[in-house]
Nucleic acid binder design. Structure first.
Lengths: 94, 94
DNA sequence: TAAAGTAGTTTATTTTATAAACCAAATTTT
DNA sequence: AAAATTTGGTTTATAAAATAAACTACTTTA
């Protein structure tokens, strides 16, 4: 009847991040913050979770001497997102 | 960009319950348990939350001397569900 | 050089989700 | 008919999540 919703993606902020990342080649911390409206602390935590799950790659470097965090969705992330969307349909489809 | 997801509906079990209730005139505890696969304890807690939010009506009575809990979605619940689905589209639409 | 801003991380707190334990009545087994 | 099991739940305890607040380190501006 209802498909299980991947709990890692069933989170407003993590879902928003994935939704942004699925549409771009890469996005940095600042851009993700703008798009999602999240606080820096929350975004930092949730990005870590997505990275630990293997759904995104995080590349930390420096632009000059300022830290710069660039994120990209992985293939596993793309798959998980698609599966999540399919599962969602079982709840919201008329 | 992203619409806010009503946190009361953004829960796998509560969403499943609402999804069932939106399609029927009413449903009892046992039926909801079957449809959702939830444990009784969890279902009991989540039904209470939906009721407190005014999204469902719960009618507790007895069939003989066995308790019988019948649930119906309210107009507010229907509205909230529809709004939630619309908000979701902002995350998952291609 | 002091104040304010940028780019984050870490830690602490609150909220949620969930299961486990429980209760009362009914049904089934021995 | 007593004992055990099942049914229909509720309450309580615990684990997991979400979030904000506080902090670090560097940069820019006044």
């Amino acid at each position: 009847m209802f498909k299980e919703l991947n709990p890692l993606l069933h989170s407003e902020l993590r879902l928003a991040v994935m939704s942004v990342l699925i549409g771009v080649e890469s996005a940095d911390f600042v851009f993700l913050r703008q798009q999602t409206g999240a606080t820096a602390g929350n975004l930092s935590v949730q990005l870590d979770k997505l990275a630990k799950a293997g759904y995104i790659d995080i590349e930390k470097s420096f632009r000059g001497r300022m830290p710069c965090t660039v994120c990209r969705i992985t293939d596993a992330g793309r798959d998980a997102f698609e599966e999540y969307v399919e599962a969602l349909q079982t709840y919201i489809k008329r």
